[in-house]
């Protein structure tokens, strides 16, 4: 018996002539956090909808907590959709009790949990106000609580960080870690790599419906080169001629001069390039040896640039 909470094998989803998900396979281990990454339109939401049983795969097989899709195990799944939605005239407690009730939690238990979780998220005073009177961030917290109040084994969060300010993003990251510590498997989609980098052990990268990477964050970052960043009055040609430099991307600085991001060759440490630059007397005002990020890895793996929305520090 596999220890996977979720696995997809050669799953394809087509809408007419358009292929939203193309031959996708991956596995989410129980009790782990899996980042499901890709730019907008990569096929993340389509995949999650198939997992939940909201739409059917054109081909391929899914295994969701031992079932062919989420429909027969919906009480064991928590879902936060990309577009948040709650009954505006309900209070947070009513909304949580109602949605947890649909998942089989008795009213008094759900109510008790709702109060505790709202207090934990700093929403104790807002628990009896109508949701339409809450701020967007507060409403999103309420929705997340509603999605997990039944203590699901598998938590699916579709773009959970979108629309949250940096403080709330950090709070949400802590909540997701808490869910995993409790033993839940968390699958969250995002197009902001920083969250995945901080939260996940395992990431699946998707672009235009196709999987381009499936493995650990360290492995993904290993696919991208380290970079030497040089700033000052030096030109791209001189920078590119330094030893161990594979390529240079230059951008002008507001205060004058250039910022050169130099991708290092596979075995280059960057030390040689720096020594040579100083030996040549190049005008370097600032330098930095930068480890690759997941964002860098994504660009290398897909050749696409990601949006960079608001991020937590």
């Amino acid at each position: 018996m596999t220890d996977a909470a979720l696995s997809l094998t050669n799953v394809t989803k087509r809408y007419g002539a358009f292929t939203a998900v193309d031959d996708l396979s991956f596995t989410a281990e129980r009790g782990r956090i899996l980042g499901f990454l890709g730019p907008n339109g990569a096929g993340k939401t389509s995949t999650l909808r198939m997992v939940l049983g909201l739409s059917e795969a054109t081909s391929g097989t899914l295994n969701v907590l031992g079932a062919p899709d989420g429909r027969s195990v919906r009480d064991r799944i928590g879902f936060l959709p990309e577009e948040r939605g709650l009954y505006r005239r309900m209070t947070p407690i009513e909304a949580i009790v109602f949605l947890a009730g649909l998942k089989g939690v008795p009213g008094p238990v759900a109510r008790k949990r709702a109060i505790a979780m709202l207090e934990e998220q700093g929403l104790g005073e807002a628990q009896n106000r109508q949701i339409r009177q809450l701020s967007k961030g507060m409403a999103q917290k309420v929705q997340l609580i509603a999605a997990v109040a039944h203590e699901p084994e598998l938590v699916i969060l579709d773009e959970p960080f979108s629309g949250l300010d940096p403080v709330n993003q950090q709070t949400l990251e802590a909540t997701i870690r808490g869910l995993a510590q409790r033993g839940a498997t968390v699958v969250f989609s995002t197009h902001v790599m920083q969250h995945a980098e901080r939260l996940c052990e395992h990431v699946v990268l998707l672009t235009r419906g196709k999987k381009v990477f499936d493995g650990s964050v360290a492995e993904a970052k290993g696919r991208a080169p380290r970079a030497l960043v040089l700033e000052g009055q030096l030109d791209a040609a001189a920078t590119g001629a330094l030893p161990g430099i594979a390529s240079v991307t230059s951008t002008p600085l507001e205060a004058g001069g250039q910022r050169h991001v130099c991708a290092l060759k596979a075995n280059a440490s960057g030390q040689e390039a720096l020594k040579k630059a100083f030996a040549q007397g190049l005008d370097i005002q600032r330098f930095e040896l930068r480890e690759p990020t997941l964002h860098d890895a994504f660009i290398v793996l897909t050749g696409e640039q990601l949006d960079q929305p608001e991020m937590a520090a």
């Binding site: 919906r74 939605g85 949605l99 929705q143 509603a146």
Partner: peptide, 16 residues
Amino acid sequence: EEKSSKVLEVLLSSAT
């Protein structure tokens, strides 16, 4: 109202 406030998708993930 439920469609415009995106509640329907939440319901669909919770009930048939």
